[in-house]
């Protein structure tokens, strides 16, 4: 098993290098460079001035050299400087990452806290009114666009509670209450679709396990229903649920972008959108690559969790 995990970790590296090449080439080969965005199209830029700008951004050398420089920088912890603000990209990300992480973490917490009980009760009381309600809720949650949900939540908060999202961000350490008040609606927004998926998976997985031999044996041994569900069924049913949470990580990372945009939260998502708007290459590269690393990393972690949850799995 240790060997499998090692190969799995080693396999991740070429994928991430490939991802970095892809994002780098995409930005370089497609029309419209950062110099075009910085300078107004009406004023013809003298060739010398353009060359000077390109040299300043390191765009004057062949693309492979640019790539190697960039990759070498990453390994030294240098992601370059933002073309627009001239701040080191690493520093910009350092300020924004914790905010996005908090948002993502809160959403997962909310999602699990709601989805697991709903899914379990739904499965145990199959075809009851509760089950039907939960399933309808799940389908709705799956289909509601998160940006629309965000708008609806803001609308309800403003109309009926006279609450507006604050303009300035307060960090969790500074003022936990104000920070959570800010984060609760975005987290609910993100958690909703996530919850729908996880709940549906929990339900079907529980249903499958509840029909299995080990559960029947446990019941025949005279164990109480509560213990059977909690101890025997749940542990086994959780395995596919964990996978689904992992798969949803991709959705979560994308959802963060939109949610941050609607609620005006200065996290990684709005960094990406701003970067795209200004063709700020170093910022886009870093933000997109970062999301890929996070995504791949989460999936790797989920794979490793398998072994813990189900010792029967022997990685071959």
């Amino acid at each position: 098993m240790r060997r499998y995990l090692l190969t799995r970790v080693v396999m991740v590296l070429p994928t991430l290098v490939g991802a970095s090449v892809l994002i780098f080439l995409m930005l370089r080969l497609l029309p419209g460079g950062p110099v075009d965005v910085l300078t107004s199209p009406e004023i013809a830029l003298p060739p010398e001035a353009r060359q000077a700008l390109e040299a300043q951004f390191g765009l004057d050398v062949p693309i492979p050299v640019q790539y190697v420089r960039w990759l070498g920088g990453i390994l030294r912890g240098d992601l370059g400087r933002s073309i627009r603000t001239n701040q080191p990209v690493l520093q910009v990300i350092g300020g924004r990452l914790p905010i996005s992480l908090e948002l993502a973490g809160l959403s997962i917490l909310l999602c699990v806290a709601a989805a697991l009980p709903l899914g379990i009760i739904s499965a145990v009381r199959r075809n009851s009114a509760f089950d039907l309600g939960a399933r309808v809720l799940g389908l709705l949650g799956l289909s509601i666009p998160n940006f629309w949900l965000a708008i609806l939540l803001l609308l309800v908060a403003a109309r009926y509670f006279n609450w507006f999202p604050p303009m300035t961000f307060v960090s969790l350490l500074e003022d936990p209450r104000a920070n959570l008040a800010q984060m609760v609606l975005p987290a609910v927004t993100l958690a909703t679709s996530l919850m729908a998926v996880v709940m549906r998976m929990t339900r079907s997985s529980m249903l499958e396990v509840l029909g299995q031999e080990l559960v029947r044996t446990a019941r025949d041994k005279g164990l109480g229903e509560r213990l059977v569900v909690a101890h025997h069924a749940l542990r086994n049913a959780l395995i596919p649920v964990v996978t689904v949470i992992g798969i949803q990580a991709g959705y979560l990372l994308g959802g963060v972008v939109i949610t941050e945009q609607v609620f005006g939260i200065a996290g990684m998502g709005s960094l990406l959108i701003n970067g795209v708007g200004h063709r700020d290459y170093p910022v886009i590269q870093a933000a997109v690559l970062f999301s890929a690393v996070a995504f791949v990393g989460i999936n790797l972690a989920v794979d490793m969790l398998y072994g813990y949850l189900d010792p029967r799995i022997r990685y071959g």
Binding site: A19, I23, L253, G255, F295
Partner: peptide, 24 residues
């Protein structure tokens, strides 16, 4: 399959944002 893995290693919406952002 490696190329597919690479595309798959980006969260879908983020890759779509990057592509449209660059293409215009």
């Amino acid at each position: 399959m490696r190329v597919m893995d690479i595309i798959f290693s980006f969260p879908a919406l983020i890759l779509a944002i990057a592509i449209t952002g660059i293409l215009g």
